[in-house]
Design a protein around this nucleic acid. Sequence first.
DNA 1: GGTTGAATAAACACTT
DNA 2: GAAGTGTTTATTCAAC
Length: 670
Amino acid sequence: MMQESGSEATSNGSASQNGASSGNPFTDCNLREVRSNGETPSLEVSAADLVHLQQHQALQVARQLLLHQQQQQGSGLKSPKGNDKQTAQQVPVSVAMMTPQVITPQQMQFILQQQVLTPQQLQGLLQQQQTLMLQQQQLQEFYKKQQDQVHLQLLQQQHGGKQSKEQQVAAQQLAFQQQLLQVQQLQQQHLLNLQRQGLLTIQPGQAALPVHQLTQGKHPHHFYHQLWKEVTGGKDENTTNNHGSLDLSTGSIHSPAPPKNSLIVNHHASTNGQHVGHTPKRECLSNEDNPHSHPLYGHGVCKWPGCETICEDFQSFLKHLNNEHALDDRSTAQCRVQMQVVQQLELQLAKDKDRLQAMMTHLHVKSTEPKPTPQPLNLVSNATLSKTASEASPQSLPHTPTTPTAPLTSINQGLSVITPTSMHSGGPYRRRYSEKYNMPISPDLSQNKEFYMNAEVRPPFTYASLIRQGILESPEKQLTLNEIYNWFTRMFAYFRRNAATWKNAVRHNLSLHKCFVRVENVKGAVWTVDELEFQKRRPQKISGSPTLVKNIQTSLAYSTSLNAAFQASMVENNIPLYTTASMGSPTLSSLANAIREEVNGAMDHANSIGSDSSPGRSPFQAMHHINVKEEPLDPEDHDGPLSLVTTANHSPDFDHDRDYEDDPGNEDMQ
DNA sequence: GGTTGAATAAACACTT
DNA sequence: GAAGTGTTTATTCAAC
């Protein structure tokens, strides 16, 4: 399941590039700087650059046509001779042939439906479409004027020979067709580029889509018009043909050059193909309580997709918004694209929700089965699982759910990140995951808190780890026994039954382990954690082999980039990530931080321990996806030496009124 | 096969 | 005396 989502998240070749470099403005800037310096981009040319190149080429053609037209207009009427005639007279060329579509509306919609395009790619396509629509309009203007000229010339040359007239018409037709061919070649080139970039997935049946099909498609302006109708609710009168960026009077074309008008420039690029740009919807949510806020304005920058114009203040932003993003075709199309983006995200969210629901349902059903099947990617060995299954006997734990627990979050799917401590199995297997791999349980608990709270699944941690976690989560880092009980029952649905058993175990662990220190209080006694003792419980040394150190460094780099990507993604997406109100905000960034801390701790330990090469278990088994060899280390040694709390003050923050259901009243204690 | 750690069960003492 | 708390021991199991 996780791999599947991972493959979906990186469904096209550019996604990984986006995931790797995007979100890092410095990287993007560096790339641009390299190109601007004239150095040959050795490896990568971004899709945006290619689209810009295409736009530039298309605009060059259009500009040439316009210049040609102007030159002709300057002399055509007075001296309609020779070469002028080739263009001065126009032939009734099919309108379809004059439709310089890069992508037909059908193709555009097809692309939009493919869900393989990032919003930036969609924007790029849209801009390309816009550019070529401008080009098309210029051609139409050109065609119209040419026909006018033809008409005038026909009037002026009524006495001309019929044969010469036909020759002129033929010559002009040839010239114009050559121009059209040039445009079509650009279109083909653009399509090829799109295919190369993975932006356009042409189905096998469409693979050999001829140009004439492209040009015979629905008129882009019609599509555009429809978009406008959709956005404006049909109020499209007097609004078409309002391409403000095209100044035919001067013959200059306002190139939609980035960054101001570019729909492509977006430093907050996507991660794994997910849209991470500032959507008005989200901004609206985040700024709705600020009177001087605007969904499209933030941090002094216009958040209109692809704009990023710096606005000094809110007033200037409003002015900019009214000027640059007025109600015109471009803005409408951009709005339409944004709608598509939102729709895709919503669709993806719905799919992921359904998937999660199916997974939960599946796991719930399987919890009643006698023998759970091992999970893919389960880090616990199959032998453990089989033991777990067989051990879930009524004698030991009558209601022990044997569900292979896989607390999942949508982000795990969306970003293809395997929650290390999520890959565990429930049930009363003897060696808990946190102990086995010496992993801190906080990331797992944080991320899967709701899961444990609602699913009657045994957390894969030792009692000692859970007790420690409960104590450390408390404000005073100390808990009474009853508060520890409450924490267990509050945090884990599993511990809302068989209270006699697990409470006894809790007490047993508190007394058994030196890491739990009992501190006398005026109100009784509280339990604290001696971190030093806790970490000394299972001294597992890390091998000082160069391979391991290298792998750990790789892991560190990975986790660092992961952290950055996660944080960027979090910031940009503002995804709640199944957060809960009562316990901070378990996020991917926290997970990444936890991973990084793990690796940092491992590195510290590796540096400090050095040459102990005893074989053993590795907490990085949990991070096997980053290719870390299994060698022993103790990643928690980087923790502070001691967190023993001796204060007698105690502020109970837990409710003591919680009833312990199925609590037999410690009948075993009698 | 021995060692170790953890879970479970139980007994017991002590305190409230 | 009941209930809760804390300690200790024993047994079983699994991983190493």
